[in-house]
Design a protein around this nucleic acid. Sequence first.
DNA 1: ATGACGGTGTGGCACCGA
Length: 257
Amino acid sequence: MKLASWNVNSLTIRLPQVLTWLQTQPVDALALQELKLTDDKFPHQEFEALGYHSVCFGQKTYNGVAIVSRSPLRDVVRNIAGFDDEQARVIAGTMDTEFGELRLINGYFVNGNAPATEKFEYKMRWLSGLHNWVRQEISLHPRLALVGDFNIAPEDRDSHDPEGLRETIHHTTEERDHFKALLALGLQDAYRCFEQADKSFSWWDYREMAFRRNRGLRIDHILVSAALRDRLKACTIDRAPRKNERPSDHAPVIAEF
DNA sequence: ATGACGGTGTGGCACCGA
């Protein structure tokens, strides 16, 4: 069973790439972020033609998340329960797998702009709200995965320039403490459950040939509960779509169980 | 370096992302 997460930076622009990718990487579930479209524009039929169900939580221009899956999702929740949010950033659902029910939470975490800004404060509140809700979700669903664009580089090795970018956005102690707090709920960073190459990243700036120079960040993550960790066989980042013409700035992360 | 690139919505640019 394969599960993937991909920030596509506009599904309108990226749909052909996503469909092509699904045919070469036929994952069982794909969590998408930054759709930048409203629910009425979501291409359910195109995914259905490839044998996928889909649930969407979109909004105009910014944000927007969806889950595309081989088996239909039930108990779908949009946004964080108990946290009032104007922005469409979370969609969760339960799916059947060969090893039983899996609760999948897909998030497009707040960017936060820069420390000591209003957006950063929103990011901190959002992360606290997520933490409180995920704690409840884990108690209800032993097999749980929290995936998405976290907009946090958890450790120095997850950044191309940890010294130069110290305490800047994605690298602050506050953000990393929030990430650790999520792990403390009983989740593990699937990517770090395996030996990985140095300078493994999931996002590269469009500017200054950052991808070619591998100046990136690892900010897209798949966190798994203990029961799922027992089933986890591999976790990889697929850099191939970042080499496409007009790519997303993010690459998909894939976990195999 | 108030930069760069790319998407959206709008409108001849501004805003946002990371």
